[in-house]
Write a protein that binds this DNA or RNA. Structure first.
Length: 354
DNA sequence: AATGCGTGGGT
DNA sequence: TACCCAAGCAT
C-alpha cells in the first residue's frame, strides 16, 4: 500500500468516526476497567443488548476492587440473559489478578494484558487502543468484513489463520495519532455502513478507497465457509414442590454448558424403557408424581438445540438428595442465576392457573 | 485447527 | 422455517 492511499483511508475513517459515532455509554470514558467490561460484554453480542447490562454492571461494580470482591452467584445474576457465562467468571478472574498483582492498574502493553483471563488478541488490542491510545490492532468480525472489502482480501475469514492477514493490514494502516478512533471507526463502519448484507456503500467514507466497491463485488465479500449444523436434544424438566411449597433447584457443573447456573431437575430423552419419574428417581434420589404441562418450547444455542417440555410435579418421597440440589422458596429462586430456558419455565410456572 | 460456549434479532 | 449473524475466547 502506498503512503498516500493509507493517509487517505486514515483521515477519511477517523474524521467520519469522530463526526458520526453513536453515543454509547462506554464512549463517555477511557477508564481501562470500564472499557474492559464493555469489550467483554460486546464479545459476540449486539450493542443494543449490551447497553442496559453495561449500565447496571458499572453501577454495581464501578471499580476493579468492587468486582474483585463480588460473589460469583451475584455476578452471574448480573450477567443473566447475556449468555456466554464463562465471560463473567473470566472477567472477574482477570480483574482479581489486576487488583492483586498490578496494584489495580490494568496493564498497558499487549504482552502483560494478554495474560489476563478472558482477554484474547481482539480484547487486548481494543483496551490498549481505546483506553491507552496504544497503536495496536483490534481485529473482530467487523474489521475483517470491512477490510476484506476495502482491500479485496479473499481469504476465508472462518479460518483462524486468516486473522493474521488482517492484523498485519491494520498495523500497516492504523492512524498512530488516533488509534482509538481508527479501530473504533473500522468497527463502527462495519456495524452501521459496511454491513454483512446490503452495505450502504453510497454513504461510506471509504467508498473511493474501496477495491470491492470499485469492482462491484462488495456483496461477494467476505468469503466465509459455512459452519456445521447443530444437534437437537429433547429435554424434559420438572418443577417439583415439596409439602412446604419449596421448589427443587439444581446447580449445573462448573464446566461446560451454562456452567454454575441453576436449573430445575431435567432429563434428556429419549432414554429407552424408562419414564421421567424413574429417571428423576435415579438421578436425584427422590420420588415424584408428575403433574400437568407447564410449557413447551425450543431453545436454540449456537451449537445445540433443546426441545423443552416442562411439567409440574410434587414430591412423594425424598431419599438421598445430591449436594448440587436445594429446596428453595420462590423468593430465593428469584435470586439464583438461571439461563433463559429455565427463566421461561419459571415465569410460566409462577403465572400458571392454580 | 476445530469445537464448545448463549442469546436475540434479521431475512 | 431455517438459517445467519454479533465489538471472541479457551482448550
Amino acid at each position: 500500500m502506498n503512503e498516500l492511499y493509507k493517509k487517505n483511508v486514515r483521515e477519511s475513517l477517523v474524521s467520519w468516526f469522530l463526526e458520526e459515532k453513536r453515543d454509547l455509554p462506554w464512549r463517555k470514558t477511557t477508564d481501562p476497567y470500564k472499557i474492559w467490561v464493555s469489550e467483554v460484554m460486546l464479545q459476540q453480542t449486539k450493542v443494543d443488548t449490551v447497553i442496559p447490562y453495561y449500565e447496571r454492571f458499572i453501577a454495581k461494580y464501578p471499580s476493579p476492587q468492587s468486582l474483585a470482591n463480588a460473589e460469583e452467584g451475584e455476578l452471574l445474576k448480573e450477567w443473566e440473559g447475556l449468555g456466554y457465562y464463562s465471560r463473567a467468571r473470566n472477567l472477574q478472574s482477570g480483574v482479581k489478578e489486576v487488583v492483586e498483582h498490578y496494584n489495580s492498574v490494568v496493564p498497558s502493553n499487549r504482552k502483560e494484558i494478554s495474560k489476563l483471563k478472558g482477554i484474547g488478541p481482539y480484547t487486548a488490542g481494543a483496551i490498549l487502543s481505546i483506553a491507552y491510545g496504544v497503536p495496536e490492532h483490534a481485529v473482530d468480525g467487523n474489521v475483517m468484513r470491512v477490510l476484506s472489502r476495502v482491500l479485496l482480501i479473499k481469504e476465508d475469514i472462518a479460518k483462524p489463520k486468516t486473522k493474521k492477514i488482517f492484523e498485519e493490514a491494520v498495523m500497516d494502516l492504523i492512524d498512530r495519532e488516533n488509534p482509538s478512533a481508527f479501530n473504533q471507526g473500522l468497527m463502527e463502519l462495519g456495524a452501521v455502513i459496511c454491513t454483512p448484507t446490503k452495505p450502504k456503500c453510497l454513504l461510506c467514507p471509504l467508498r473511493e478507497n474501496c477495491s470491492a466497491f470499485f469492482e462491484g463485488v462488495q456483496d461477494e465479500l467476505p468469503i466465509k465457509t459455512i459452519q456445521k449444523k447443530s444437534k437437537t436434544h429433547k429435554v424434559k424438566t420438572v418443577v417439583i414442590q415439596n409439602k412446604d411449597g419449596h421448589v427443587l433447584l439444581e446447580k449445573r457443573a462448573s464446566k461446560g454448558l451454562l456452567a454454575n447456573m441453576w436449573q430445575f431437575p431435567m432429563v434428556e430423552l429419549p432414554t429407552p424403557n424408562h419414564t421421567v419419574e424413574e429417571i428423576v428417581e435415579h438421578d436425584y434420589g427422590i420420588e415424584i408424581e408428575k403433574g400437568p404441562l407447564i410449557n413447551e418450547f425450543k431453545h436454540v444455542f449456537s451449537h445445540l438445540v433443546w426441545e423443552m417440555e416442562s411439567f409440574e410435579a410434587i414430591l412423594k418421597q425424598e431419599k438421598e438428595l445430591p449436594n448440587r440440589c436445594k429446596w428453595l422458596t420462590i423468593e430465593e429462586i428469584n435470586l439464583q442465576p438461571m439461563p433463559v430456558p429455565m427463566l421461561k419455565i419459571w415465569n410460566a410456572w409462577k403465572e400458571r392457573e392454580i
